[in-house]
Design a protein around this nucleic acid. Structure first.
Lengths: 343, 343
DNA sequence: TTGTAAGCGTTATCAT
DNA sequence: ATGATAACGCTTACAA
């Protein structure tokens, strides 16, 4: 209510103000800031003094409008509370920041409407690029892409169609690693809790797992394979099924750490100790894997590297170049902790 | 290399193109889009047809430049992999989206340099507002605030200084709830693993805890209080100290769920069952509290509500109003799961 | 080396 | 109800 109450402070200096104070033209100020064209030492110092004096900060909106790059990218994930996906956001943000840009992140909540609206907004905002995780609907994304030609990279879940640069895990190899670990520990009664076989990535993983068991003379019958999703509940449900069917497993591979954790919890509640009675190995290596008890043995997805490569792939496009490879496949890694044990 | 190889597609329609196609002026197009001034039914239809035909999308950069609102806010958190903080991002993003804006999120990594650079960028970008979590350095933030007068809200860790709108947990009450739960279960040998007493919020929590124990005729000696941080390792270290000192506790309150989980893991490795031998209660109610085994009893921090209120507090300022209350204090809630048990 | 001026795509203030 | 036209703050030919 008193004087000086209103917000606003000093009314934000613009290049014009700086120019006036330094007795030069705005273009000279621009040159000093962007170091694009050599400027006389003396005038440069003058301009820099004026900038400091006015605490001038270039307006990124104006710059973006003019030079067609706002130095922002968009990142869409289907779920922000999921530890694997927040890891993705974390590492993408890191790489993006190192490249000098910022990240608009959107949680699409696995909702096509929200996803579409978010992408639409990003395009209106003329972001430099978009990084996607787990796209829910291929066609929609591709339509957006073809219309607007905004640099785009898909991470973690590949689109089958070519042309959209993609970073994925070698999912078959993930299955191989899990199977070899369990077999190496002497297990023979082995089961698998997986994502839906409709999802390419889930199929690949199971194939690698099954093939490797076969190579060791072991069989993975359909009864020993529970297909749910990659969530915690799926782990619980998988154990319930196996127990209800009286299947005497001593080792289980889960297609996600969350499912593995669900399995461990349910086994515990049913009086089975992990790894005493049953060994459990997960997939992903989310943060919780380290801090759970028993700490989770898992097939690690190199999230950090995946994100680094995705951002790299995007920046190449931003610079107007064609990416060398349009599909980056990264190897998984076995991380042995406490939840698996020799028979 | 073939023709049509270059990127760009059709060269993005602008309002001018729409105006030309609809045989009207750009101002009319603007009016149709913003419904700010009544427009003749017939011309409106014409314009709308042209918009559809050209797949015109207003350029948010230009709009932001002109109307001084880019419909973006910035959100800074010190750590994106921490489940409590990714919860914050999740819920803030949700509320912000519902308000029709988007979120630029930055992980400041507890690094003052990064934090300062991020905030600086947000200001250059003329974001509508900034939401902070766990500010590392008060003075710096306040300086930025006073210079630029950008709407700002601090969440989760209050600044002591008045004037910066803040949303916090009633930390004293959190301690009260934890103590009452443990006392109600019949425990008398009670310890506490807390954050540094230098942090106001940690002190408050311990005060609530200690006062409540006193009210029940119990004492919390300094030996039964381990001060670390809010991380997993702190839980481990706390247990080690208690065990090394031969302190026979039967119940522990940890100042974060992460520390509680660390405590449970270390107890397990030392052969103590939870809740069989020792009851453990945490603070926060992160996602992992539900899915750990045993599921974690905890004092819940209402993250969703906190974020909703924070965004609300910010939007009020964005609209140029003064917030009614400059400090919102939300009550914690006791969530009983499996990790605590009666003596 | 420096200045002038024309945009970038909007919104907002005038007239008409 | 509609149309010129001037900003918004910056970059960038083009001149000087």
């Amino acid at each position: 209510m008193s004087a000086g109450d209103g917000r606003g402070g000093e009314p934000v200096a613009s290049m014009k103000d700086v120019a006036k104070l330094a007795h030069v033209s705005v273009s000279t100020v621009s040159r000093v800031i962007n170091r694009t064209i050599p400027v006389d030492e003396r005038t440069r110092l003058q301009v820099e003094r004026a900038i400091r004096k006015l605490d001038f900060k270039p307006n990124l909106l104006a710059r973006g409008l003019r030079s067609k790059s706002g130095h922002v990218i968009g990142m869409a994930v289907p779920e922000l509370l999921h530890p694997a996906l927040s890891a993705l956001v974390n590492y993408v943000e890191d790489s993006v920041r190192q490249a000098g840009l910022q990240c608009i992140v959107g949680n699409t909540r696995n909702d096509l409407e929200i996803e579409a609206a978010f992408i639409e907004s990003l395009i209106r905002r003329h972001v430099d690029g978009i990084i996607f995780s787990r796209v829910s609907d291929e066609s929609r994304v591709l339509r957006v892409l073809s219309k607007n030609r905004v640099p785009m990279v898909v991470i973690d879940r590949a689109l089958d169609s070519e042309g959209v640069p993609t970073v994925v895990l070698d999912n078959y190899q993930a299955g191989v690693l899990a199977a070899e670990h369990l077999v190496g520990l002497g297990h023979t009664r082995i089961a698998c809790i997986s994502g839906s076989s409709k999802i390419h990535l889930a199929r690949e993983r199971v194939n690698g797992f099954r093939d490797t068991l076969s190579r060791h003379g072991l069989h993975l019958p359909q009864t020993h394979l529970y297909e749910g999703d990659f969530g915690f509940e799926t782990g619980i449900e998988g154990i319930r099924r196996f127990l209800a069917a009286g299947i005497p497993v001593t080792a289980i591979w889960a297609g996600s750490d969350l499912a593995a954790l669900g399995a461990i919890a349910e086994l515990g509640r049913r009086g089975r100790a992990v790894p005493g009675d049953v060994s459990v190995i997960g997939t992903d290596d989310i943060e919780y894997a380290k801090i759970s008890f028993p700490a989770l043995t898992t097939v690690r997805q190199p999230f950090q590297e995946m994100c680094r490569r995705a951002v790299e792939l995007m920046m190449v496009q931003v610079r107007g170049q064609r990416p060398e490879s349009t599909r980056v496949v990264l190897p998984p890694e076995l991380i042995v902790r406490e939840s698996t044990r020799a028979m």
